[in-house]
């Protein structure tokens, strides 16, 4: 399989604080790779480095065969940050127009993409409303739509389904599967264990280290667990025993 994201021996330090330590991971094309870990484990730092916003202290990250950060490669990435990075004074539509223009979309193409993306997240009827009147879940969905606008080859989602109701969460996951089938590679972080089951590959992150990786089935079988949570506990505990 063709690897799209390669993280090689990456460590990240903020002053004396070691956030990530010797991270190795590979994400293959069409995969939905889930980065599972509690808050503070370093998930956000890792995805920010992959998205090209942060720089590793040591080690290297390459995305689509070019070493990050690289502006050209960044056009191929859709990034949805943990905070809803939206302009509250603007309407949903104006937000989407702004973000799509940054990626060079204009005219009919821009309109089509905005329609598609907002339809995907069920926001078509609310596009005229200013974003500061949106609910938390609506803001998340608009953020997701903004990340999808330029039809990126790689989608990086930092805790995408926080505050979204179960029905909508399911429909978002259905969309992610569809995107993945059509060739998009997806990297998603989550601290929700049952959500991790939905990914095709998993990396378990704890205290800045990858404690285990593999498909959800493998991880469960290897530890004879019935759930991902149990598996996580097993690896986390094993790590502590060392």
């Amino acid at each position: 399989m063709q690897s799209v994201i390669q993280v090689k021996n990456v460590s990240k330090k903020y002053r004396s604080h070691q956030v990530l330590q010797n991270i190795d991971l590979t994400v293959n094309k069409n995969e939905i790779y889930g980065l599972l870990g509690p808050s503070g484990a370093g998930k956000t730092t890792l995805v920010k480095m992959i998205a090209g916003i942060e720089i590793p202290t040591t080690g290297s990250i390459s995305v689509l065969d070019s070493v990050m950060p690289k502006l050209n490669t960044m056009t191929q990435i859709g990034f949805m940050a943990q905070s809803d990075a939206l302009y509250g004074e603007l309407s949903g539509k104006e937000n989407l127009e702004f973000f799509s223009s940054i990626y060079g979309l204009k005219g009919q193409k821009q309109k089509e993409r905005i329609d598609q993306a907002s339809d995907l997240v069920n926001l078509t009827n609310f596009l005229q409303k200013p974003v500061n009147q949106y609910s938390g879940g609506m803001k998340r969905r608009l953020s997701l739509a903004a990340a999808l606008l330029h039809d990126p080859k790689i989608l990086i989602l930092d805790e995408p389904t926080v505050g979204i109701d179960p029905v909508l969460r399911q429909s978002i996951w259905d969309e992610l599967y569809k995107l993945s089938k059509s060739g998009t590679t997806i990297l998603v972080t989550t601290h929700v264990m049952d959500e991790a089951e939905k990914c095709s590959q998993l990396g378990m992150l704890r205290d800045g280290k990858i404690i285990a990786s593999g498909s959800p089935r493998e991880l469960k079988d290897n530890t004879s667990s019935t759930s991902i949570e149990e598996a996580f506990l097993y690896y986390g505990g094993a790590h502590h025993a060392n």
Binding site: A51, G52, T75, F79, A85, I102
Partner: peptide, 14 residues
């Protein structure tokens, strides 16, 4: 503070 700067820095905007 609202995170939009980070969002913009994840785009190819210089």
């Amino acid at each position: 503070t609202t995170g939009t700067l980070e969002r913009l820095l994840a785009t190819p905007m210089r």
